[in-house]
Simulated assay, not measured.
Amino acid sequence: MILLTGASGFLGKIIREELAKSDLVHTLGRDALNDIVCDLSKERFSTQHAYSLVVHCAGKAHSVPKTEEEKAAFFQVNYEGTVRLCQSLSASGKPPARFVFISTVAVYGVEAGAAISETHPLAGTTAYAQSKVQAEAFLAEWCKVNGVTLSIVRLPLIAGPNPPGNLGAMINGIKTGRYLSIKGVNARKSVVMAADVATIIPRMSEVGGIYNLTDSYHPTFPELEALIAAQTGKGLPLAIPLWMARMLGRIGDLAGNKSPINSLKLGKIISTLTFDDSKAQKELGWRPRRVLDEFKI
């Protein structure tokens, strides 16, 4: 029997569908449709069931906090929620044999670089990154004390039906004609199919360890733009020269965080940022599909 948190989310839905093919899955979340209704950011839960595997997919992401209260919300959900989940499992007297934690490449705290591996320092400074770093550290100790095999998966952009985050924003921008491409920029970005992540979880849970997962190809922005434009029936987005994009970025700096583009955001767009998944290939037999071949909007 498997316990899955965050089953109503983008990735959680896909993980649930995959795991349910081979085992009974209980879900935990705030929605009344869950088997266990609980808001882990505020409370613990009780259960009489013994779970062989817990997949902790629930978390807060895809927003930029503007206040201290909004920053604190990341820690309440991502760190304190993880602590309460484990405390509840301990109280049941039946800790799972295996635990999989869905984390993020944001923990590395890098905005540019190529083939960044799992050994890179955890230097993330955002509330999102730090809350995940703290959750990872807590889980490492809790699983060690309780004899639980821990797997941590650090994910980049995730592709699948109606994706959230930057990929979802790109799709919406191209659909509405409010997206500007930048000429001559071929920065590569790590992306992974959500379905591939779901498929590898059972194998990963048996082996344990920390893994980056990508599609191993790392498409360029123009490649993603062309794929999305073709699937939406739109023409390729308007492309502007880099010098003009830099000028718009400087104007955005003056406008503050509300600006759709500034120098910081532009720097991320034009810089390659990829992660090394060779460890997963060697230890798990990870054989991902190329996002450019499989992604359907």
Rank of each mutant, 00 (worst) to 15 (best):
158 I>G: 04
1 M>F: 00
185 V>A: 10
180 L>W: 13
258 K>E: 13
86 C>K: 03
248 L>F: 09
114 A>N: 06
294 E>A: 15
170 M>R: 10
172 N>Y: 12
57 C>K: 02
177 G>T: 00
128 Y>G: 02
64 V>R: 14
280 A>K: 02
12 G>Y: 03
117 S>N: 15
39 D>S: 12
18 E>V: 02
89 L>Y: 07
263 S>Q: 09
85 L>K: 01
121 P>R: 12
287 R>E: 14
139 L>K: 04
10 F>Y: 09
135 A>V: 05
145 V>F: 11
73 A>G: 00
14 I>S: 01
57 C>E: 01
244 M>I: 13
125 T>Y: 02
268 K>Q: 15
231 Q>D: 13
94 K>H: 13
3 L>K: 02
17 E>S: 09
57 C>D: 03
228 I>D: 04
252 G>R: 04
41 S>L: 08
296 K>N: 14
7 A>S: 14
227 L>C: 10
266 L>Y: 10
158 I>M: 15
36 I>C: 09
228 I>C: 06
88 S>K: 02
178 R>M: 08
214 T>D: 07
81 G>S: 03
162 N>M: 12
176 T>I: 06
209 G>C: 05
15 I>M: 03
291 V>A: 04
100 V>A: 00
93 G>V: 01
257 N>M: 12
89 L>H: 07
56 H>G: 08
81 G>A: 06
223 E>V: 06
77 V>L: 01
47 T>Q: 05
212 N>K: 07
117 S>F: 03
172 N>M: 12
291 V>G: 07
102 I>L: 07
76 Q>I: 08
128 Y>R: 06
90 S>E: 15
288 P>D: 11
74 F>K: 00
187 A>K: 12
265 K>R: 15
140 A>F: 02
137 A>N: 13
245 A>R: 10
98 R>L: 00
141 E>A: 15
207 V>H: 08
